[in-house]
């Protein structure tokens, strides 16, 4: 009788453990990405974005990279508007 109960307890725990470890988490698993570098050239004229010309538009052909008004944030500042 005591053994029977013990078995039930262990099978409950085993089941719970399986459920917890194998069910998918909402939003999916978090994959460990390495650090990387990226660049966005102007899709119109192929020019790179020069630092002193700002982030929002292409200095050569006027292509708009971002339709927004940058403010003073953490690293990005007002001066980064093209």
């Amino acid at each position: 009788m005591a053994e029977e109960k013990n078995k039930r307890m262990l099978s409950y725990l085993e089941q719970l453990k399986l459920k917890a470890t194998q069910q998918p988490h909402y939003g999916g698993d978090i994959t460990n990405e390495e650090a990387q570098m990226d660049i966005r050239d102007c899709p119109e004229c192929g020019a790179a974005r020069a630092y002193h010309k700002g982030l929002t538009a292409c200095a050569y052909c006027g292509f708009v990279f971002m339709e927004t008004k940058l403010t003073d944030g953490i690293h990005i500042k007002k001066e980064n508007n093209s």
Binding site: L55, F65, T68, H75, I76
Partner: peptide
């Protein structure tokens, strides 16, 4: 929102 990821992540 018309912005790039570094801008969004700051906001």
């Amino acid at each position: 929102l018309g912005v790039e990821l570094p801008v969004w992540q700051e906001a």
